[in-house]
Write a protein that binds this DNA or RNA. Sequence first.
RNA 1: GUGGGUAUAGCUCAGUCGGUAGAGCGCUGGAUUGUGGUUCCAGAUGUCGAGGGUUCAAAUCCCUCUACCCACCCCA
Length: 418
Amino acid sequence: MIRAIKGTRDILPPSTRVWNHVESVARRVMESYHYGEIRTPIFEETALFARGVGEETDIVSKEMYTFADRDETSITLRPENTASVIRAYIEHRLDQLPGLQKLYYIGPMFRRERPQKGRYRQFSQIGAEVIGSESPAVDAEVIEMVIEILSQSGLEGFHLVINSVGCKECRPKFLATLRERLQDLKGQLCQDCQRRSETNPLRVLDCKVPSDQPIIETLPSILDHLCEACSRHFAAVRTFLDDRGITYEVRPRLVRGLDYYTRTTFEVVHGALGAQNSVLGGGRYDGLAEALGSKVHSPGIGFSIGEDRLVMSVEEAHPKLRSETLDLFVAPMGDAALRHVTVLARELRREGISVEIAFEGKLKRAMETANKLNARYTLIVGDNEIAAGTYALKEMASGEQHPVTREQISERLYAGKH
RNA sequence: GUGGGUAUAGCUCAGUCGGUAGAGCGCUGGAUUGUGGUUCCAGAUGUCGAGGGUUCAAAUCCCUCUACCCACCCCA
């Protein structure tokens, strides 16, 4: 038997309803903030991600699906979408357009990691980017919008965490200080942290090993080492969030995995997701466009929601979203009735009523099916009905059945929908 | 890449001391020739993950492999 590739999966009807729900909420919210949708290719030149995401990141160094095209161009399935959006922004000179560029996307990403709960090799992200402003008011609006998407999707009990990681002026200085401190202390830390001290010192701050905590407490905080401009920026972001009544936790130890982040970074976590409890991550990337070859300074900020994880949580909180809805099940008896009903069903569907026809089988079987499909009404059409010029309409929940005219079908069905 | 767990019917799972493969749900038919849900009756469905070994006899014991799940790492 041929099975889906490891880390990929089929998403089937009861669940696809929830996916569509989440996506339509996200589109509606983002359109209301006047974002436009961008669709970039699923694969790009490998160099885009190497430069954009960062050679040293786990994503680039060990998680990409990379292969040689027939002309030997190195191609990579996109592991994230911000680099592609910025590439498109530069390629199409979107900086020449009036106002900010506010773009959103929904689609699959690919990373070759070991799968586990909430983590897949093909996964979907809902993301957005604002390019062309450094204003902290933009940061706050982006965060507000993503919170809006989560809550309107039906997610409850999530937790927003924010931080500032500084800019190209102050972050290197902080890193140097941190490395220096770790040189003296790392002997007392766990194995992982001894390694991180070399590879990614910021990660040490995020370590969860209890015995390391007292030492981590003594390490410097990035927030105390921000330059004047970054410090003012972060304070302003917080003020704008406070004005909106958005609750958040400032976590100086919050670290994001992509190299391009500057200043504001944020994350939303949710319990019941397993160990992979982050439902979205985002941040500012004021230097990314220039790193990718832009001649003009194009600061940006964005986020991406792990759609698989959001759907998982929403499904758990609202199992009803999975339930099927069928307005009318039609049970014809005999060939003449089937022909009659086929025409009728088409009319009703054009009126916006969902209709399913029992193409074969006895009436009893049709009734059983109608019940299993949770149909609101069943319409029975046989020789008696055709002769009388009426239909037998049965309301499944009450069991009540009445003869109705053609017009009354639409009236009854439409009445219940609104 | 590393560690742990699991693998028996379509699904969820039981299977004792090694002795003919089980339940619930679902599915099919009937009780009811044109009426669902509840009930009752009957029925179908298995490479017991794969390969090898021990044994008169293996779902069960041993070895190897594979797949999936969870966790580490890391991230969405």
